[in-house]
Amino acid sequence: MPESAISVVNLQKQYGQTPALNSVSLEIRQGEMFGLIGPDGAGKTTLMRILSSLMDPDAGECRLLGISVKEHPEKVRRVIGYMPQRFSLYPDLTVGENLRFFADLFGVPRLDRQKRTEDLLGFARLSPFIKRRAGRLSGGMKQKLALCCALIHTPRLLILDEPTTGVDPVSRREFWEILKALKDQGVTLLVSTPYMDEAQRCDRIALIHKGNILAEGSALEVIARFPGKVVAVFGPDLPGLAGWFKKKLRSEQVQILGDRVRLNLFTQPRVSMDELCAGAEDAGIAIDAVDEVGPGLEDTFIALVAGKEEAHGAIG
């Protein structure tokens, strides 16, 4: 049995002149929950479609469970489950009919099908809705049904494209618990999400931006690559404070968060923090306290994107 569930080497894809994937390489181990984290347009969907054999790359190679996607797309399709970003089931078919349809397409034997359907629906707590049309389900239930359809043939590898986008927080949490249970059953999962907080639930993650992998590793390992520090500034006039810092720093570095202004100092500012604060006091903006806080994944992402762009600018 191959060591890695997904192995991607130098994958490239362009849409016309726009590069979508820029020499992407990734190794995802068996039984691992891997998160692909990045904003819209980062290349997550393109990568997942290529892996699912729905799209051909311009260059590079990918193997799923040791099978080459390029050479044996039909074999890959048998062993993976893929859940597209958009809800892609038939709204006029019931929950049960949708499941049965995909079971038939995957050639699940009739006896297994019944048991599998019952198990999956029970697992996703959709059993009471088996006769309801898919179009009349809530957003969270639709996603759970889509997951069940992707799981109907008991795949060993599951590729989920932004499964929690547009789903309410409670359903999101429930969905991640289901994914965790799948992982415990030994299924390898590749999940993409634009939400940084969801990355914490993955064993390992890759930050992706404009078709480039910026960092790879566990969430802690990735955060450890944060180069500067994060500072919280407290004061009575938060908008005033934020405005002041935005004049002195890049605007993406300054954020009002609850009772504080959060400064993402991934590079040393030209003037020191003390001088910045003194300047603010001089301008008549009061500062109560300044605290250093731990960086988060989002801080790291912003820092890595800025670093990449600077490096690119230096070359260009």
Binding site: S52, S53, L54, E74, R77, R78, I80, Y82, P84, R86, F87, S88, L89, Y90, F102, L105, F106, G107, C149
Partner: peptide, 13 residues
Amino acid sequence: EAGTMEQILVTPI
């Protein structure tokens, strides 16, 4: 349009 083709195509059809 509905994206269901995408879901059908990942089956061994």
